[in-house]
Amino acid sequence: MKTAHRAALLALPLALLGFTAPAQAAEAGPTPSAQLTCRGQGVDPDAKIRYRTERLIKAPMSTIYRLQTDVERWPTWQKPVTGVKRLDHGPLRSGSQFRWTTPAPATPTTPETTLEITSTVHQIQRNQCIRWNGPAIGEGLRIDNGVHVWNFRQVRDGVLVRTEETWTGEQVEADVPTATRYLGGGLETWLDELKATAEARPC
């Protein structure tokens, strides 16, 4: 692998996700063949980097959905997110855009930088699903397109939250297993923080 690609990939986990990927994420089971969808649209079927996971959250659907769609408040409960700016107004809807940032700490071969992610919502259905996509760009680091789908389903003991994401881009595809492990670590952390925050809220 070229040095520049390796350096960018090593910066990726903290840059994009804020945490080192947990070891168990690398050992997660295979992604189910039937991808998650929102209004009939799913993740990139041709992407080499993909990860899917889920959590049962014992909190009201309204609480979980509000936390997930009130994107400007993500920094209050997601440690890796340092800032979010809506690029439109009103409730999150199809066509909504938001720009969010997270720090990328320095490595032996790359300076400290900020990763900027611009997400566009393409499909959304209240209390059921959301699908957005967009690039993530930092100094010496780029994910050309990340496609992210969330599903929410009321079950007997709470709400089952499922998520699936794919990445494409030359830098991350230079080492697919490592990129997949870090993507998985980020999604596991996101769901852990969503679950902890939602279950701590009064009903």
Rank of each mutant, 00 (worst) to 15 (best):
R55L: 04
T114G: 04
P202S: 12
D144G: 01
K2T: 04
V121I: 13
E112H: 08
I130E: 06
F152E: 12
R181C: 04
A47H: 12
N145T: 10
A8P: 13
R55G: 02
R156P: 05
P108K: 00
M61T: 14
L67D: 15
F19P: 04
T120C: 15
P105F: 01
A4M: 01
A104V: 05
A7Y: 09
G138R: 08
T166G: 06
G83R: 15
T113A: 12
E193I: 11
D192G: 03
A198C: 12
I64C: 05
G83C: 10
H5L: 06
D88A: 05
H5F: 10
H148F: 10
T120F: 15
T20C: 03
A23L: 13
V121W: 09
P30M: 12
T107N: 08
L16I: 03
V161I: 07
A8L: 15
N145M: 10
G185I: 03
K79E: 15
P75G: 09
H122W: 09
G40M: 08
Q24T: 07
T109V: 00
L141C: 11
P105T: 00
A8I: 13
Q154M: 08
T31I: 06
L115D: 03
T109E: 01
D46S: 15
R126L: 05
R131N: 03
R201W: 13
G158C: 07
R156A: 11
R126P: 02
S119M: 10
F98K: 03
L10E: 13
A4L: 02
I130P: 03
P177W: 14
T102W: 13
T102D: 14
T31N: 03
F98L: 04
L12W: 08
T53F: 05
E112P: 08
I137P: 10
R99E: 15
A28E: 14
M61R: 13
Q128F: 10
E165Q: 09
A196R: 13
P177I: 14
E170I: 08
H5C: 05
T101V: 06
G18S: 03
A200W: 01
E173F: 12
R73M: 11
R73T: 13
R66A: 11
E54Q: 15
W167R: 01
Q35H: 09
R162H: 04
T110C: 06
W77Q: 11
V149P: 05
W167C: 02
M61G: 13
E164M: 01
A25S: 04
E139L: 07
P13Q: 09
E173Q: 14
N133T: 14
I57E: 06
Q41H: 07
A174R: 11
S33F: 01
R55C: 02
A26R: 14
P30T: 10
Q78M: 12
M1S: 11
A106M: 06
A8G: 15
A28L: 00
T53I: 00
T109P: 00
N151M: 10
G134W: 14
R201T: 12
Y182Q: 14
E139R: 07
L183I: 06
W132H: 06
Q68T: 15
P13A: 07
I49K: 00
G146M: 03
S96I: 02
L194R: 08
T82S: 06
G169L: 05
G146I: 01
Q97A: 03
N133Y: 15
T20W: 05
N127G: 00
R131K: 06
T113Q: 08
H122N: 13
E54A: 15
A34T: 12
R131F: 04
D192V: 02
A23P: 14
I130S: 03
H89N: 11
T63L: 07
T180W: 09
P91M: 11
